[in-house]
Simulated scan of single mutants.
Amino acid sequence: MPLIAAATGDRPSRRPVWFMRQAGRSLPEYRELRVGRGMLESCFDADLVTEITMQPVRRHDVDAAILFSDIVVPLRAAGVDLDIVAGTGPVIAHPVRDRAAVRALPRLDPKSVGSVAHAVGNILGELPEHTSLIGFAGAPFTLASYLVEGGPSRNYERTKALMHGEPEVWNELVGALADITITFLRVQLEAGVHAVQLFDSWAGMLSLADYERFVAPHSRRVLAEVADFGRPRIHFGVGTGELLHAMGEVGADVVGVDWRIPLDVAARRIGSGRAVQGNIDPAVLFAPWEVVEGHVRRVVAEGDAAVAAGAAGHIVNLGHGVLPSTDPDVLTRIVELVHTL
């Protein structure tokens, strides 16, 4: 499998490429399938998860499928009262802001995400043999930020206030969320996914000192608790250029890089021995094709330079997720181009 080879320092048979948020978002067949179905409802329907996960594989010939899900799925499965509101994102009915609320958080029973495991089995039965299946989960900090803020936030003021003002409560909260994340990832790994990605989507809102003190120990525990499967662990966040070395140090085999920093520079920050993933700017995909092509070629060249600088490999991807109005044909052309380089 090209992606696994690049992630582990082997020579892939072709340059691997996939796109974050490729399952859904921009595909008309996805939007048609989702009519009348809520996001969370869809994430717990094994047949629907299978079909949505497979759609971009059929259309684009990407080298990896990523399980159709959402980072709040394990929270909902555990019993947290939340919903995904269109145009807003996850909204928490009862935000968690004190010790009592932290201690009232439910644990995740693996049986409550049995539909996810069932979907993994279905997908593995349909995937081409060269195509990897990536499972994923939200990292403890990002999940905590949603729980504390009550939803998406610009400044994360409540999160940072709890983190700094009541560090013991903070660590108890993030520790509980690490338990949920570990359980969810292990369910996916036991079902057979080939790799997992830990999304710390909003870690870039933190200083390096805060990341190392309040976040890194919990992410390190998550990645350590799934290391026994021997499958690549990818770690990604947005705006994390100043955190890349620390994110690599928590136990990732592959570190995702957004579009703000060249891959070869990122590789030197991360340190040798880890692969890099990224980092096409999702917004550039709206430019004329000759511009997109030039941008992709530059990213690939920087990926090669990253490998020359000591990175284990390069997995081509976007620097964040596919934007909803992206032309799917552009994604297909990018895959075709990457496979020729």
Rank of each mutant, 00 (worst) to 15 (best):
P74E: 05
R221T: 11
D200N: 08
L185P: 00
L162G: 00
A93F: 07
I180K: 03
L147F: 13
V80Y: 11
V215D: 10
A176H: 14
A161M: 00
P262C: 09
A311E: 04
A203F: 12
Y211N: 03
I52A: 06
V62Q: 04
W289C: 12
R274I: 07
Q22V: 02
R260S: 10
G114N: 11
G79V: 10
I315V: 13
T53C: 04
A224S: 15
W289S: 10
L223W: 12
P12N: 08
L3P: 08
E129S: 15
G9L: 05
A216L: 06
S42N: 01
D98G: 11
L133R: 05
I92G: 07
T50W: 02
S115L: 15
Q277Y: 13
D179I: 05
L147K: 10
V299H: 08
R59V: 11
P167Y: 07
S325D: 15
G278D: 10
R15Q: 10
V72S: 07
A203N: 01
V169S: 09
A306Y: 04
V116H: 06
E51S: 05
V226E: 07
V17S: 04
T88L: 14
S112L: 14
L82Y: 03
T332V: 15
T332A: 15
D200R: 03
P106I: 12
A178M: 02
V102N: 00
I66A: 02
A283G: 09
G310M: 06
G79F: 06
L323M: 10
H314T: 06
R31Y: 00
H130F: 03
L318E: 05
A78S: 09
G24W: 03
D327G: 13
G294Y: 05
